[in-house]
């Protein structure tokens, strides 16, 4: 095993994902502890320019037509040999629709340990520490990276993407892909996101509703408040899965990232998948009957009060304030 930290760069349709830079920042912290290099692994086809702003000591670039778009099977095949032969100290993946699809398979295939939901890392007296966020953000788990090549899937929040960007172009080393044949997963097509009536990613005032809302009719309740305040209603995943709100109104990992002046979260617990989409909000106010809800760790103001009691009172006072 060598002491390098590998980062599997995530990109989709020609654009590197923020998590790639977050991982590079984390890798730098680990590499400073091990004395190794930060090595970015870029898989793609005619995608070398994606290496330009990666804050890495070296980029291993694997070019193959079968890697033009992400598929789990091709990625896993391309990575397996590379990880096994080079045996880096750790390999970082995003805990995402890309990274999480391949890290587990590689862990099982290469018999390497896997740490997931990792939010931050640090080097501590020779030991490499991970901190993972589990139980919907309610519990943090800390431990040492096992003493062998370890695979890690990372969630955002511990490092800023800017820390993983560099103005200096890194050294790029082309690597020949193994034969990517007999692939069992193929991309047929992309389906573009639904265009909604409201673009929540640019709305300055958002009233967000979550599981605390008990029926479809109650979404109207939130609409009333949004109308009083002059904002739009958005939601966390469960309400969209219920069909109560269109996908275009979903905030979080699979939905939109928002950056309003006010994010008023009603009945939202603050699961990491949701929080990921709201971190850039200027002011977060949370209302939830569970005083331990993780959303209160992120919000500047909170109230553990029933949203059904609060909404009518709040809408009324807002109308009065606007009228005066």
């Amino acid at each position: 095993m060598n002491q390098d930290i590998y980062v599997v760069v995530e990109h989709l349709r020609g654009q590197a994902a923020d998590i790639s830079y977050v991982m590079l920042a984390a890798a730098r912290v680990l590499a400073q502890g091990t004395g190794g290099n930060v090595v970015a692994v870029l898989l793609g086809h005619d995608a070398q320019e994606l290496a330009d702003d990666l804050a890495a000591d070296q980029v291993l670039y694997v070019d193959d037509p079968a890697l033009a778009e992400f598929t789990s099977d091709a990625y896993e095949k391309a990575l397996a040999g590379l990880v096994e032969e080079n045996a880096p100290r750790a390999v970082l993946f995003g805990d995402t629709s890309i990274g999480a699809d391949v890290a587990g398979g590689l862990s099982a295939q290469l018999e390497l340990p896997l740490v997931s939901y990792c939010q931050s890392v640090r080097a501590d007296d020779g030991a490499l520490k991970f901190v993972s966020q589990i139980c919907g953000g309610k519990i943090m788990t800390e431990g040492d990276l096992p003493d062998t090549t370890t695979l890690v899937t990372m969630i955002p929040g511990g490092f800023k993407p800017e820390e993983g960007q560099s103005a200096q172009r890194p050294e790029v080393t082309p690597v020949t892909a193994p034969a990517l044949e007999d692939l069992r997963v193929t991309l047929k097509q992309y389906i573009e996101p639904e265009v909604g009536d409201v673009d929540i990613s640019t709305e300055p005032i958002l009233i967000a509703v979550g599981r605390g809302v008990q029926s479809e009719d109650d979404v109207e309740f939130a609409e009333e408040l949004a109308e009083a305040l002059g904002g739009a209603v958005c939601s966390s995943r469960p309400l969209v899965d219920q069909g109560w709100l269109p996908t275009a109104r979903m905030v979080g990992k699979s939905g939109k990232r928002v950056k309003p002046k006010l994010y008023l979260a009603m009945g939202i617990s603050g699961a990491p998948e949701h929080v990921e989409g709201i971190a850039d909000s200027e002011l977060i106010v949370a209302v939830n009957t569970d005083p331990d809800a993780p959303i209160f760790d992120l919000a500047q103001y909170g109230a553990d009060i029933d949203l059904y009691d609060l909404i009518p009172a709040l809408a009324e006072q807002i109308r009065q304030a606007k009228g005066s």
Binding site: I139, M140, D144, A286, F296, D297, G302, A303, D309, A313
Partner: peptide, 29 residues
């Protein structure tokens, strides 16, 4: 085999938490 060993579990530190607004719905509003 294949899983890390957990050294410590903890709840996210208090102190970074939101300023809680007390009172009934009218006071909170």
């Amino acid at each position: 085999s294949g899983s890390p060993t957990v050294g410590r579990m903890f709840q996210p530190e208090a102190g970074e938490r939101a300023t809680m607004i007390e009172g009934d719905e009218d006071e909170v509003a």
